[in-house]
């Protein structure tokens, strides 16, 4: 029995996790969400922006990590538009431009922000770090049109925007390469613009040294960060709804770890006893 449990078929584990995730969606737990210091910092970076500030938001995620990054983007857009800031969206990932369009339209519907005067979606540009360096003094050179083909000059909010120097804050939703590290190297390193980011929970530890050194001024870590941010904005969304399921999944994994160790310990004790009996005989 112990041996069987020790090498438990992983499908039982999968089944337990499935049940743990489904239960909170059927019976919501409504667990309180405590806001972390990191999320407060992120919130403050946007809160301190004067009205009319221009924020460049980079959508560098794909469909896989949409579930973690998209709620952050939606909440931040809501926050920026309610503070009357202007948003230039762009993407270093091809799929990012489409997610930017979706998030911008939803936030515009919610806040009444207008395309062209409050926000613009410049779309995707291939090249990663090259784009950031090339666009350094002249964003228009790399993004002559927005995603729908409107020319730079015909978009009112882009008047006066030249390079990174004319952007007040960079906000990068980043799940890999290219992502926030490229912004830190180019826009932070050479143009000294403040950078905030939202990452997946898995990649967050990699960004933490940059947060501690001040090269990134605020970070939202995975779905937890997104849910805390939604709570701060008093606008619970997809992330806050998912936290119950996340909690249950974590508890299930923790239970499996305890179970594995108890079995390991019992096995070890049995083996020791057997060897003593064998030695005595």
């Amino acid at each position: 029995m112990l041996d069987k449990l020790s090498s438990l078929d992983r499908r039982w584990i999968f089944l337990a996790i499935t049940i743990a995730v489904i239960i909170p969606f059927v019976f919501p737990l409504g667990l309180p969400i405590k806001v972390s210091q990191q999320t407060k910092q992120f919130y403050e970076c946007i809160e301190q922006l004067p009205q009319g500030s221009v924020v460049c938001m980079s959508f560098d995620y794909g469909p896989g990590t949409r579930v973690e990054c998209h709620p952050m983007a939606q909440a931040a857009l809501y926050h920026l538009f309610t503070r009357r800031c202007k948003v230039i969206a762009l993407a270093l990932w091809p799929e990012g431009a489409l997610f930017a369009r979706e998030a911008l339209r939803e936030a515009a519907k919610e806040t009444g922000a207008a395309e062209g005067t409050d926000y613009v979606n410049l779309g995707y540009k291939a090249g990663g770090e090259v784009v950031l360096r090339g666009a350094g003094d002249d964003l228009r050179a790399f993004f002559p049109n927005d995603i729908d083909g409107r020319s730079w000059d015909s978009i009112p909010m882009l008047k006066g925007i030249k390079g990174w120097d004319t952007i007040d804050l960079i906000c990068a939703w980043s799940m890999g390469k290219p992502g926030v590290l490229e912004y830190v190297r180019v826009v932070g390193g050479s143009y000294h613009r403040p950078i905030i980011t939202g990452t997946t929970a898995v990649t967050a530890p990699e960004a933490m040294p940059l947060v501690n050194s001040g090269q990134i001024e605020g970070i939202l870590q995975g779905m937890r960060g997104a849910s805390e941010y939604e709570v701060m904005l008093k606008r619970p969304g997809a992330a806050a709804r998912g936290m119950d399921a996340l909690s249950m999944a974590h508890v299930a994994i923790a239970a499996f770890i305890i179970m594995a160790n108890v079995i390991y310990w019992l096995n070890k004790r049995r083996d020791r006893r057997n060897s003593l009996v064998g030695g005595g005989a």
Partner: peptide, 17 residues
């Protein structure tokens, strides 16, 4: 793509065990 990414939750559980 999201479904493949979400498999991570299951694999994290089995790897932890």
């Amino acid at each position: 793509s999201a479904a493949t990414y979400s498999l991570l939750a299951f694999y994290i559980a089995s790897a932890s065990y």
